[in-house]
Each structure stands twice: as C-alpha cells, then as structure tokens.
Simulated assay, not measured.
Amino acid sequence: MPPSHVLVPLDGSPLADEALAEALDLFECRITVLNVVTPLDAGMSEGGVLGAGEKRRESARDRADRLVARARDRAAELDRTVETAVGTGDPAETILEYVDESDVDRIVMGGHGGERGSLARRLLGTVATKVVGEAPVTVTVVR
C-alpha cells in the first residue's frame, strides 16, 4: 500500500537532497520536509563546541528556513508542493516525535550528511541509525 504522508528530514547534505528527490519521484502523496535545529546548549550540537548566543540561534534558524524554502522551490520545479516544518531538539527524537504527531506513514532520509569525518556526518549517521531502529513506520535510507 502506498504511503499517504511521507516525511523527509533535511540537513543540507547532498544525501538529504537526494532523499527529497527520491520522495518526490516515488510518491504522489503529501510530503513534508523537516529540518531540526539542535539547541546550542546540547552536548553534541555544534553550539556545544562553538558556544551559545542569540546570534548563533538566529543563524541556525535562518539556515533551517533556507533549507526548507529550497526544498519548496525544488518541488515547485516539478509542479509539486511540499509542506515544511522546522523543529528544535535532538534530531532523531524530533523526527520520531513528528512521525507520531503528524500521521506520517513513511520516512525517506539520507544515510549520513556532511564530508567524511565531519561532525555533521557523525551526527546524521547516528540520527539515521536511531530513526531506522525506532520509527514505527517504514524508513527508506538514501545512500
């Protein structure tokens, strides 16, 4: 049975972009793209390394807004629409909560993000692993 609502978590990585392209290509249903802003005081967040501050929070939120707007534009190029959402928190937990609260029945996501060895890659690799292991719906991992 085809899904009726697909969630595509975006982090700005090429694989996340490929996950969006895959979802748009495969599914003719409601698609939501979600970017999760990790709190700057979280232990594994970029902010945990670089320091917190209002300017950093604004920058992270602006980046999230740009990512979901870019996804909306990519969908429009294909005469499609996507819903967009920006969450805050632990990425895997926020994705799983969104699934539970939003009637999502499929997740399509990248397997890892960023350059080899980067903090982003390690974090998203961990996120994908947790989502695959704990999601109550089918997860497609794009590699």
Rank of each mutant, 00 (worst) to 15 (best):
G117N: 13
R72E: 14
A64L: 13
R116I: 09
D65R: 15
L20D: 02
V68K: 07
E18D: 08
T32S: 07
D62Y: 13
D41T: 13
A60F: 06
G110Q: 06
E83M: 03
D62I: 10
P14H: 09
S118E: 12
G48H: 07
R106S: 02
A60L: 15
G89H: 02
E101A: 12
D65H: 15
P3Q: 04
T138I: 11
L15F: 05
V127I: 07
V6L: 08
K55E: 15
G113Y: 07
V132E: 01
R116F: 12
R61M: 14
A128D: 01
A16L: 01
R66L: 14
V6Y: 06
A135D: 03
V141L: 11
S118K: 10
G53K: 07
D65G: 12
A85R: 12
S45Q: 01
A71E: 06
D103A: 13
E18Q: 14
D11L: 03
R106Y: 09
A71S: 08
T129W: 03
I31A: 02
L15A: 02
D65M: 11
R30C: 08
K55R: 14
G43K: 12
L40V: 08
T129P: 00
L124P: 00
L7R: 01
G125V: 08
A85C: 10
R30T: 11
V33E: 04
R70C: 04
R61V: 14
T32A: 06
H112Q: 13
L67N: 06
V49F: 15
I107G: 03
E54H: 14
V49R: 11
V68Y: 09
V132F: 02
V82F: 03
L34S: 01
V104S: 04
P3T: 02
D105I: 05
L10C: 00
E28Q: 10
D62K: 15
L123P: 01
L15P: 01
L26Q: 09
R122I: 02
P2H: 06
L34P: 01
V33D: 04
D73P: 03
G113E: 10
G43Y: 15
R70I: 03
V137C: 10
M109T: 04
G113L: 14
A76N: 08
V99N: 05
P39I: 09
D17G: 13
N35S: 11
G133A: 07
P14R: 08
A75V: 10
R56T: 05
R74F: 05
D11N: 06
E22L: 14
G125L: 13
L78N: 02
E22V: 09
R121N: 03
A135E: 02
L10M: 05
A16Y: 00
K130F: 00
D73M: 11
I95V: 15
L15G: 04
E77M: 14
G47A: 10
L67K: 05
V68D: 02
G48W: 09
G53H: 05
G43E: 13
T140N: 07
L119K: 09
D100V: 10
L119H: 10
T126S: 15
T84D: 00
G51V: 07
R70W: 07
P3H: 00
G125S: 14
E97Q: 12
V36M: 10
L26G: 01
V33L: 08
E58T: 11
M44D: 14
S13I: 00
